[in-house]
Simulated scan of single mutants.
Amino acid sequence: WDSVETFLLHLAQQVRYPDRITLIRGNHESRQIPQPDAPVSVCPQIFCVHGGLSPSIQTLDQIRTIDRKQEVPHDGPMCDLLWSDPEDPAGWGVSPRGAGYLFGSDVVAQFNAANEVSMICRAHQLVMEGYKWHFGETVLTVWSAPNYCYRYANEMLMRC
């Protein structure tokens, strides 16, 4: 599907099922980098985010207070939610991307317990298999971008 049709379908789903569908923002959704990203949250027990977690955020209520109607800042909680990635070492680490953080399984366990969610579902990282579980199935990366940067064709694309 083209990005306009995909967005309109998600928007219609949000209108029809306002308690079950939430549109979230990706790091490419700014005036500088137009991309067809429109990830969707569909279950209250699953925290859906484009990138990952932030050391500045411990609760979902803190996320709700972020003004999302702005350009993506170069640092801070909103930037972290869009750019952070899971990584094997425990705790927080410096991201090689130059934005966001690397976060470990202990960070995920603490966040999930504090917010009564069973898992985090995210995108933001190329996964050739189409999806990848992290930390004992507490974080799921889903990647199905067709022809990303005109050079990748991952498994999710092949199955469609």
Results as ranks from 00 to 15, higher is better:
Ser3Ile: 11
Val4Tyr: 09
Glu5Leu: 04
Glu5Asp: 13
Phe7Asp: 09
Phe7Val: 06
Phe7Gln: 07
Leu8Val: 12
Leu8Pro: 06
Leu9Tyr: 06
His10Pro: 15
Leu11Trp: 14
Ala12Gln: 12
Ala12Lys: 13
Gln13Met: 11
Gln14Phe: 15
Gln14Ser: 10
Gln14Asn: 10
Val15Glu: 12
Arg16Glu: 08
Tyr17Ala: 07
Tyr17Met: 06
Tyr17Val: 08
Pro18Val: 00
Asp19Leu: 04
Asp19Met: 03
Ile21Asp: 00
Ile21Pro: 02
Leu23Cys: 03
Arg25Ala: 04
Arg25Cys: 04
Arg25Phe: 03
Gly26Tyr: 04
Gly26Val: 05
Asn27His: 03
Glu29Met: 07
Glu29Gly: 10
Ser30Tyr: 05
Ser30Asp: 05
Arg31Glu: 05
Arg31Gln: 06
Arg31Pro: 07
Gln32Lys: 12
Gln32Ser: 14
Ile33Asn: 09
Pro34Met: 13
Pro34His: 13
Pro34Leu: 12
Gln35Glu: 13
Gln35Ser: 15
Pro36Gln: 07
Pro36Val: 02
Pro36Met: 05
Pro36Ala: 05
Pro36Ile: 02
Pro36Lys: 06
Asp37Met: 09
Asp37Thr: 15
Asp37Trp: 08
Ala38Phe: 14
Ala38Lys: 14
Ala38Arg: 14
Pro39Cys: 11
Pro39Ala: 09
Pro39Glu: 03
Val40Ser: 05
Cys43Tyr: 09
Pro44Lys: 14
Gln45Cys: 14
Ile46Cys: 09
Ile46Trp: 07
Phe47Asp: 01
Phe47His: 03
Gly52Pro: 00
Gly52Lys: 04
Gly52Arg: 04
Gly52Met: 02
Pro55Gly: 02
Ser56Tyr: 13
Gln58Arg: 12
Gln58Leu: 09
Gln58Ala: 12
Thr59Asp: 06
Leu60Met: 07
Asp61Ser: 09
Asp61Asn: 08
Gln62Val: 10
Ile63Gln: 06
Thr65Asp: 14
Thr65Lys: 09
Thr65Pro: 12
